[in-house]
Design a protein around this nucleic acid. Structure first.
Lengths: 205, 205
DNA sequence: GTCTATACGTGGATAGAC
DNA sequence: GTCTATCCACGTATAGAC
């Protein structure tokens, strides 16, 4: 198993960096978690220093995440629409956020550093095309507030998702007891429900 | 000015802890920022150790924030409503979040510690009554998604606010170029706009 | 109450045996 | 490639002069 030591170090670092941050994670702890003797310098046979390890962790995570980019949902193009497709898209987006979680945890610890990490990862997020994709989805909405300021509506939707994810995942709050399904369903309905839903309920799921 | 040394230390710590975290802030840096000689143990004439200082910082901030609790807006009780009062309330809530910022920054660094800090501050947030207050505001909404699941709608609203604030403030993102006004206006309209606004525009501001 | 000086512990990183 | 042993930088905290 000696050949996999470098990978085991990255595994351990991904976990420990996310839990406590890079600065608060001694190399000795990484060695121990990777099955090496704590305090031996064996770590340095695989990485020049702790910062090089950090870059390797981010690089491997970025490559992994890129494979899992969610597909954009197809909203029905006709007049007969419901919030269900968008709600499904949002659930999928929550999964994507969960997939990003380890990297996000590390970046939250490293915030404020003038490193290139944030730039790199921000690029990956943009690649997913959140903003544009969301805006596309909402173009067809007949909700007045969405039609009047599409960009602001897309921003509301995106930050509601990010806020929900961060609050539930990072801060352990039960999110007021509202499940992911209820959250995404309500958010989607706020966004795309036809204004006259009270008079003609949606025929789709 | 010697009498104010303790307060100057708290001032410096509030800033430095928020910028880099407690662990990454040496006592020597606090001394320097408070106008004491860096490396002299003068700090220890005022606090037993760095943790006691952290508690003092949080305590002072909590007391300060409690004075600034925003008032709940009065939504018009009649049938003739607009989103304007809620939008104004949300702008005020953004100010409140900004007021909480220094403490939130520290808590983000200290996340994961099994300390009593999070509990304390969470209590202060609950005291503001975000959840209940928001739910109250939305009771009168005629938006279908809000009427069908008031709690989920309030959660969406709250996390949209938190997500917007965190993204703009902590991560420096331009928030897609959407200003606070556009954001809160759109969010408020999504929440309370009458379903038939297209047919009978609101007569209020 | 602030200073100089210092003891001590932790963690980053290297040397050299195996 | 992993180990033992060690050096060194940095930060905490204290002692004691002023």
């Amino acid at each position: 198993m000696a050949a996999g030591t470098r990978e085991r170090i990255i595994d351990a670092a991904l976990r420990l960096f996310g839990e406590r941050g890079v600065a608060a994670t001694p190399v000795t702890a990484i060695e121990a978690a990777a099955g090496l003797a704590s305090g031996s310098g064996s770590f340095y046979r695989h990485f020049k220093d702790k910062n090089e390890l950090l870059l390797a962790v981010i690089e491997r995570e970025m490559a992994r995440v890129k494979k899992n980019l969610p597909q954009l949902a197809d909203l029905p193009r006709g007049d007969d629409r419901s919030a269900a497709p968008l709600a499904a898209q949002l659930m999928s987006d929550l999964d994507f956020l969960a997939d990003l979680r380890p990297m996000m945890a590390i970046l939250m610890w490293e915030r404020g550093h003038p490193s290139e990490l944030s730039t790199k990862v921000r690029g990956a997020m943009v690649e997913r095309g959140v903003e544009l994709g969301v805006a596309d989805l909402l173009v067809q909405s007949r909700t007045p507030a969405v039609k009047d300021d599409l960009e602001a509506a897309a921003t509301v939707m995106m930050y509601a998702m990010v806020g929900y994810f961060l609050a539930t995942d990072f801060f352990g709050a039960a999110a007021g007891g509202v499940s992911a399904e209820r959250f995404t369903t309500t958010l989607a309905r706020l966004m795309v429900d036809p204004a006259d839903i009270g008079h003609s309920p949606p025929r789709d799921v």
